[in-house]
Amino acid sequence: MDATSDRESDLLDLTAVRLAHLGQLDDTVLARSLRRLLDEADRPQDAIAGFQSAL
């Protein structure tokens, strides 16, 4: 349950994912995404919402 309302949260938990698991994946979108997320897990989790109309 979410602390700020009566809604159910639907976020996924990555704590059970280990680098060893990723070694069993090819260079897929999933593997690349998880590697990035695990790589940055120890960094500050602040971010700004950037401009949509540019890359």
Binding site: D10, L11, L12, D13, L14, S33, L37, E40, Q45, D46, A47, I48, A49, G50, F51, Q52
Partner: peptide
């Protein structure tokens, strides 16, 4: 994907 895994978004 980042958001679903609990990370903050970097796009508006």
């Amino acid at each position: 994907i980042r958001l679903v895994c609990g990370r903050p978004s970097r796009t508006e």
